[in-house]
Amino acid sequence: MLAVQQPTSVPENAPEHCPGTESELAGKSAACAGCPNQDVCASGTTKGPDPALPLVRERMTQVKRKILVLSGKGGVGKSTFAAQLGWAFASDPDVQTGILDVDICGPSIPTILGIASEQVHTSAVGWSPIYVQDNLGAMSVGFMLPSPKDAVMWRGPKKNGLITQFLKDVDWGTLDYLVVDTPPGTSDEHLSIVQLLKESGIDGAVLITTPQEVALQDVAREIDFCRKVGVPVLGLVENMAGFVCPNCKGESQIFRPTTGGAARLAKEMGVELLGSVPLDPRIGKSADYGVSFLEEYPDSPGTTAYLGIIERTCLRCRLA
């Protein structure tokens, strides 16, 4: 079903030509000779669906809407947008929101939400999310590292294991929105989250880009990915779109849309352009200090742009 290179189920320490644990040939091919797990594979128990799936489904029955924040390119503002989206949802005290950070190697959500020093607690019902406010919880690998300096040097299977745990073990309670922040690219993390949430249904993905062609190319690939795996694209957000000099108020384009920017890409790929956010140094500063830009600078053009985009995202989400 997924247009993915087979096999997807080759363990990290598998022999060279391992057919994959879910393959018909598992335990039977020539490469399996001598592998310590040959008997397990040959017995057929590895071919069934992932045993975590029913548990994930169980947890996710309590989550009304699941939104992915994606971008092929790094550093375009995925985490910042995910955090603003979370804050905007949570501004309504009756709405419960969760933010899940599946960027395992570079988690930014803890810093952006201002909860970087927190640690995860485990209870009988699962891992408790870290709460920014009563109705806004977050989960990230950043809460599990002894020091923020520590690198997570994991290959795919380990990252997938943690993402599975995030989805089945985190005690979110009842949520109106679960915003999933992802790493750049189209690889293990993305495949895992999509496969694990397939049954519970993903409402859609918001794609973030910056105006220059190098970023647009990566985002075009991400749209292609969404189509391959069947995730609806809610729309495209153009970030860092123009810079207003605080001194002379003149606007200039730092990341020049040499090829037409996000508007052209949206048109070409047939997706909606949800809006453009100007490049405002205060947005980055708010993220560094872990405060909500929307609340700190309610009158700035950036806030107006964000709120418009978030409104359109919700609208698209309800229609989807």
Binding site: Q5, V10, R155, P157, S187, H190, L191, E222, I223, K228
Partner: peptide, 13 residues
């Protein structure tokens, strides 16, 4: 095509 995505897990990479 430029817009083709490469959706690969670790071993393939």
């Amino acid at each position: 095509k430029k817009s083709d995505s490469v959706v690969w897990r670790g071993p393939k990479k």
